[in-house]
């Protein structure tokens, strides 16, 4: 039973199609100095221009800017954009500021959309089994019939569709994710 760590995770995890690209987002790193998030982009059209116009976190009401905003690019194959959000997460954890949101403004092809993804930092107990557990990668084959699905990480959250803001909507319009 090794030590367990609190981790940020997305309330709303899953992929959605935005114009010519399929988008997914998940927390890849979570620690004392901040959170690292991966945006997975997979083209659904032969040619797709994607630009991340803005990305920020809201941690307990405190805004956190992305360290570096990736440049616009043509997405021809699966592409993974890494977004680092540096902040004092140790202080946030100690203060109980464990609810947050990821705010993205993404342009794919001719379409621009704003997304708000709810996030939460949690820890299930101070220790966890030190048995290595693996999580499926994007595009990994589904479990064979009659066999159990592959194990998932302790920090995995059940998939649910991303919740986009309505056109011209604001973050205040965004409903809480389903329980």
């Amino acid at each position: 039973m090794r030590r367990n760590f609190p981790m940020w995770s997305m309330h709303t995890l899953g992929s959605r199609t935005l114009s010519c690209v399929e988008l997914d987002a998940y927390v890849k790193k979570s620690g004392k100095t901040g959170v690292g998030i991966v945006l997975a982009l997979r083209p659904v059209a032969p040619k797709c221009s994607v630009e991340l116009e803005a990305a920020s976190l809201d941690i307990g009401g405190e805004p956190v800017a992305v360290s570096t905003l990736p440049a616009a690019q043509e997405v021809r194959a699966a592409t993974y954009l890494y977004l680092a959000f540096p902040f004092d997460n140790e202080a946030a954890w100690n203060a109980g500021r464990n609810d947050g949101a990821l705010r993205l403004r993404l342009r794919a092809g001719a379409r621009s959309e704003q997304l708000v993804l709810s996030m939460r930092q949690h820890r299930d107990g101070s220790h966890v089994s030190d048995r290595e557990e693996t999580a499926p990668t994007l595009g990994s084959p589904a479990a064979e019939p009659g066999k159990p699905p592959p194990p998932t990480s302790n920090h995995e959250v059940p998939s649910a569709p991303l919740q986009p803001l309505p056109p011209n909507g604001s973050s205040e319009d965004f409903a809480e994710p389903p329980p």
């Binding site: 995770s9 998940y26 927390v27 959170v35 997975a40 499926p136 990668t137 998932t152 995995e156």
Partner: peptide
């Protein structure tokens, strides 16, 4: 935090 993840295609957190 600033170094890219080793397996970005995996949805599991490091």
């Amino acid at each position: 935090l600033e170094s890219p993840p080793k397996e970005p295609e995996s949805t599991a957190a490091e």
